[in-house]
Design a binder for these strands. Sequence first.
DNA 1: TCCATTTGTTACTTTAAGGTTACCACTTTT
DNA 2: AAAAGTGGTAACCTTAAAGTAACAAATGGA
Lengths: 104, 104
Amino acid sequence: MENNLNHAYCPAIETIALIGGRWKVIILHVLSKHARRFGEINVRVPSISRKVLTEQLKELEADGLISRKEYKELPRKVEYALTEYGESLCPLLAYIAAWNKEKV
Amino acid sequence: MENNLNHAYCPAIETIALIGGRWKVIILHVLSKHARRFGEINVRVPSISRKVLTEQLKELEADGLISRKEYKELPRKVEYALTEYGESLCPLLAYIAAWNKEKV
DNA sequence: TCCATTTGTTACTTTAAGGTTACCACTTTT
DNA sequence: AAAAGTGGTAACCTTAAAGTAACAAATGGA
């Protein structure tokens, strides 16, 4: 129905809600290679602050895309990894990275 | 080199710079179906304001992803379409939309 | 003459996102 | 006792993004 367009469902919107923003794709891309602890992600995501990294990781965890595992070690060790749901994003993440390389 | 990680090149970053943000993927997705005039995009992208739509369209045009064609008609008619470069994003846009549907 | 339509623009305000700095908890090493 | 390493948190500030409302240009028609 053409009179209902401004309420039209756009399937891209929810995806954007989950992985949009300045950092999430980059964080997920880092984790897609293998699980990383907090400090490792921090070093691999250029110029993100610890505060923002913490926030983004919490959101990704709340959305079920990554898991957080705390080891009883010294000093502290917390490891983040993609969940199965997060893994399903890998082709998309790879595409995002690849598209940029292939461009003319 | 592992000591250079915070300057590491991340191929996803540039892609995010081009299509990141709240609206660009959605706008591109709308235009991926076919060329649209300003008002048509405005109606198909839920709740975007004209001001922001104008801004985003200008940025997308400046980045070479879309073209802007003004017709000498009454009342004004301006049509936006994907460029060839923008078309190269279509598989990615389709993937973004499809992923959301397939999720468990 | 004045209104309607379409595509904007301008000025101003509000909200969201991100950054900075300092600090804490826990444990081992010095 | 104090420092070092890891993974945070809290308070505060700045910047970027988005929204609102009013206005403009161009032109046909009532």
